[in-house]
């Protein structure tokens, strides 16, 4: 039985943010001809090729600058990180290795891949979503019993 947390439900800001993300991916592919896949953009820096570094740094700098620019005019939305440092390390390692083996993450497969109607990205997205659901179930309901 699914219980919805109506008090946390924010469909409009979620939709608006999603549209902005879609516009970013659209601008990137239409202007530069590339997929806005964050894990791929970061990962390409670890096996750098000539003339393939600066744009990656520029994209990531834009992402990191977004909250800084936001803070100049408004309060930043909540960012609540409840995981401990050891859990964040394990999580980061899994995300790093997994996204490279799987050739993408929520942005490359989830947003761009599904928009391209790619079967490969659909498979990846269903797989990581399922793994995410199972992991949260295990952590919140089996281990901690909350």
């Amino acid at each position: 039985m699914i219980e919805i947390a109506w008090e946390n439900f924010t469909p409009w800001s979620a939709l608006a943010g999603g549209i902005i993300i879609g516009l970013s991916a659209a601008a990137f592919v239409l202007l530069n001809g590339r997929i806005a896949g964050i894990s791929g953009i970061v990962g390409g820096l670890l096996a750098p090729r000539k003339r393939d570094v600066l744009w990656r740094v520029a994209f990531l700098a834009g992402m990191i600058a977004a909250p800084l620019i936001w803070m100049m005019t408004a309060d930043l939305p909540a960012i609540e990180i409840n995981a401990s440092y050891p859990v964040l390390v394990i999580s980061g390692l899994l995300v790093g290795i997994g996204t490279r083996y799987g050739s993408g993450c929520t942005s490359g497969h989830g947003v761009c891949g599904l928009s391209r109607l790619s079967l490969r990205s659909l498979t990846a997205t269903l797989t990581f979503m399922t793994a995410g659901f199972i992991t949260v179930y295990a952590v919140r309901h089996l281990i901690t019993g909350a």
Binding site: F128, A131, T135
Partner: peptide, 23 residues
């Protein structure tokens, strides 16, 4: 593709971070 995505999803579910939001 599948093994990588399973690892990614597990990591995502552990802390709630994927690469973009982390940055």
């Amino acid at each position: 593709l599948v093994i990588g995505s399973v690892m990614f999803g597990a990591g995502w579910g552990l802390a709630g971070f994927c690469p973009g939001p982390g940055l």
